[in-house]
Amino acid sequence: MSENQISTTELTSQYIAQVTSDLERNSKEQERIATDISGLQEQLLALQHDHTVLVNMHQALGGTSPVAGVTPAAPSVPSQSSARTKQSKAAKEVKAAKPKQAAATGAKKAETKKPEARKSAAKAPRTTAQPSLVDLIRGHLEAQKEPRSAAEITTALTAAHPERTIKTTVVRTTLENLVARSSAHRNKQGSSVFYTATTEAPAKAEPTAAAG
């Protein structure tokens, strides 16, 4: 009878170690997926903003049926269901060997680790918020003393923000939108088009000239 107890104790310890290892691996996998989701959400927000700018340009040019944006599905559901499936399988294996203590310990650890993984996933998108492409382009133009082309602006912004995907076509469309709103000037030199930021100096000089 004592040998059976020893064998049961050893088996229980083995299952406890296995379940603990599975839980740690599961938690790390959730953190990795949460990080990937954060990066994808950032790219999605940038694309949605660019889509809004393009829609405004399309309507300003007389378009009537702009392409609608794509609404993504919630990315957190597959990861949670996968985690629940793995945990249910582990629980069945533990019950089959009758190690009740291992099941209780694994359940407690799972309950303590799940909130931590969810908190990290919830905090990630907030820390990665970045200025919009319009703000980046306007700030770049204001910092330049000479006119810049769309290609030059794209190169500068890509070097300053390597984590973002910035295309010349989107930059040119955004610049034209700024010109339409009198937030930038367009200068054509030969076959090339250059842009500069608008300033308030010319507007203030007109009353003085009129008074003279």
Rank of each mutant, 00 (worst) to 15 (best):
residue 4 N to I: 09
residue 4 N to K: 12
residue 5 Q to I: 11
residue 8 T to S: 13
residue 9 T to H: 06
residue 11 L to S: 08
residue 12 T to N: 03
residue 13 S to G: 13
residue 14 Q to V: 04
residue 17 A to F: 07
residue 18 Q to T: 12
residue 18 Q to Y: 10
residue 21 S to K: 10
residue 22 D to S: 09
residue 23 L to D: 04
residue 24 E to D: 06
residue 24 E to K: 06
residue 25 R to M: 10
residue 26 N to F: 00
residue 29 E to N: 03
residue 29 E to I: 01
residue 29 E to K: 01
residue 30 Q to T: 03
residue 31 E to G: 06
residue 33 I to Y: 01
residue 33 I to T: 07
residue 34 A to E: 04
residue 34 A to W: 03
residue 35 T to M: 08
residue 47 L to F: 00
residue 47 L to K: 05
residue 48 Q to A: 09
residue 48 Q to I: 08
residue 50 D to I: 15
residue 52 T to S: 09
residue 54 L to R: 02
residue 55 V to S: 02
residue 56 N to H: 09
residue 57 M to R: 13
residue 57 M to F: 08
residue 58 H to T: 06
residue 60 A to Q: 06
residue 60 A to T: 08
residue 60 A to C: 05
residue 61 L to D: 12
residue 61 L to M: 14
residue 62 G to A: 14
residue 63 G to K: 11
residue 65 S to F: 14
residue 65 S to V: 13
residue 66 P to A: 01
residue 68 A to T: 02
residue 69 G to F: 04
residue 72 P to S: 09
residue 72 P to E: 10
residue 73 A to F: 07
residue 75 P to R: 03
residue 78 P to D: 04
residue 79 S to R: 15
residue 79 S to V: 15
residue 79 S to G: 10
residue 80 Q to E: 13
residue 82 S to M: 13
residue 90 A to G: 05
residue 90 A to P: 02
residue 91 A to D: 10
residue 91 A to Y: 03
residue 92 K to L: 10
residue 94 V to H: 08
residue 95 K to V: 01
residue 96 A to V: 04
residue 97 A to Q: 14
residue 99 P to I: 07
residue 100 K to S: 15
residue 101 Q to K: 11
residue 103 A to N: 02
residue 103 A to L: 13
residue 105 T to I: 13
residue 105 T to C: 02
residue 106 G to T: 11
residue 107 A to T: 10
residue 110 A to I: 02
residue 111 E to A: 15
residue 111 E to F: 12
residue 112 T to N: 12
residue 113 K to D: 08
residue 113 K to C: 02
residue 114 K to T: 05
residue 116 E to P: 01
residue 116 E to Y: 00
residue 119 K to D: 11
residue 119 K to Y: 09
residue 120 S to A: 13
residue 121 A to D: 04
residue 125 P to K: 00
residue 126 R to G: 11
residue 128 T to E: 09
residue 130 Q to H: 05
residue 135 D to T: 08
residue 135 D to E: 14
residue 138 R to T: 11
residue 140 H to R: 15
residue 143 A to F: 06
residue 144 Q to W: 00
residue 144 Q to A: 14
residue 145 K to G: 14
residue 146 E to Y: 12
residue 146 E to H: 12
residue 147 P to Q: 07
residue 148 R to T: 14
residue 150 A to K: 00
residue 150 A to L: 00
residue 152 E to P: 00
residue 152 E to C: 00
residue 155 T to E: 09
residue 159 A to D: 14
residue 161 H to Y: 15
residue 161 H to A: 11
residue 163 E to M: 14
residue 166 I to N: 05
residue 167 K to I: 01
residue 167 K to G: 02
residue 168 T to F: 04
residue 170 V to A: 07
residue 172 R to Q: 14
residue 172 R to D: 14
residue 174 T to Q: 00
residue 179 V to I: 10
residue 180 A to K: 03
residue 183 S to C: 08
residue 183 S to E: 15
residue 184 A to K: 05
residue 184 A to Q: 08
residue 186 R to G: 05
residue 191 S to Y: 06
residue 192 S to E: 11
residue 192 S to K: 12
residue 192 S to W: 06
residue 193 V to D: 13
residue 194 F to T: 01
residue 194 F to C: 01
residue 194 F to I: 05
residue 196 T to N: 05
residue 196 T to V: 01
residue 199 T to L: 09
residue 202 P to L: 03
residue 202 P to G: 08
residue 205 A to H: 11
residue 205 A to G: 07
residue 206 E to K: 10
residue 207 P to T: 00
residue 209 A to N: 07
residue 210 A to D: 10
residue 211 A to T: 09
